[in-house]
């Protein structure tokens, strides 16, 4: 259990120009290896083909007592405060969760209960969920979207859902879901670029010739593994 979010990567794609999009994934799955993060990985891969991305991840089930013991924002430990601020300051927030008992898990909601009421106003939020079957797909529109409507967030119009049957283990195989992700991101390409506030990608990033380290696209270098300093 740690209070620090994992920096998923700080890699640049094929884009030498422009600021990196600072993406924060709030992950509602309790599993170490999950379909929910399997789905998010595909979203992040798609994003990386569009612009430079700096992604980090908050696993709500791994935040510990400093989080679960807090009923108000003032109660949280400095570590958790850092996590909440990270989410509040993201360029793009990905709210990703499995469906539990017909909705998002309580632990996931607890994280957003601690988020400042106006911190997500006009914030780009992509909704993603996984469920045991297609019956759960409306969780996106009936549970997740109203939550972010409360925050007056700018939710991406197309939300992403995948069923257990779309995965082999945690690897997403169904091309229809891939297509849906492409569509969701294509709708907001300009917005994503306009809102990217991360560090400018150095011109010699990757292979040094200005092209993408394509085969190395998802590699996790030592720098990328380091824990984000939440304090």
């Amino acid at each position: 259990m740690t209070g620090a979010p994992t920096v998923i990567d700080a890699e640049r794609g094929a884009h030498t120009a422009g600021a990196a999009l600072r993406v924060v994934v709030v992950n509602g799955s309790p599993s170490q290896k999950s379909k929910t993060m399997g789905l998010v990985e595909v979203v992040l891969d798609a994003l990386r083909t569009m612009l430079p991305v700096e992604a980090s991840q908050v696993d709500v089930y791994r935040l510990g007592q400093g989080f679960t013991g807090a009923t108000e924002r003032d109660d949280v430990t400095p570590e958790i405060e850092g996590m909440l601020r990270l989410a509040e300051n993201a360029d793009l927030l990905i709210a990703a969760t499995p469906v539990y008992r017909g909705s998002y898990p309580g632990m996931f909601k607890h994280f957003f209960d601690l988020i400042d009421q106006y911190a997500l106003a006009n914030k780009l939020v992509l909704l993603a969920a996984t469920g045991g079957g297609d019956h759960h797909a409306l969780v996106l529109e009936h549970a997740l979207r109203p939550l972010f409507a409360f925050f007056q967030a700018l939710t991406v119009p197309v939300a992403i859902f995948a069923s257990a049957g779309d995965f082999d283990g945690v690897t997403l195989l169904n091309p229809r879901v891939h297509g849906r992700i492409e569509m969701a991101l294509a709708d907001v390409t300009d917005l994503l670029k306009a809102r990217a506030t991360g560090a400018q990608a150095p011109a010699d990033a990757g292979t040094g010739d200005g092209t993408s380290p394509s085969s190395d696209h998802k590699s996790r270098g030592p720098a990328a593994r380091k824990q984000y300093d939440a304090a």
């Binding site: 257990a164 049957g165 779309d166 082999d168 195989l173 169904n174 229809r176």
Partner: peptide
């Protein structure tokens, strides 16, 4: 049985 992933793999 009908899951997309089994058909694809």
């Amino acid at each position: 049985g009908g899951s997309a992933a089994s058909a694809i793999s």
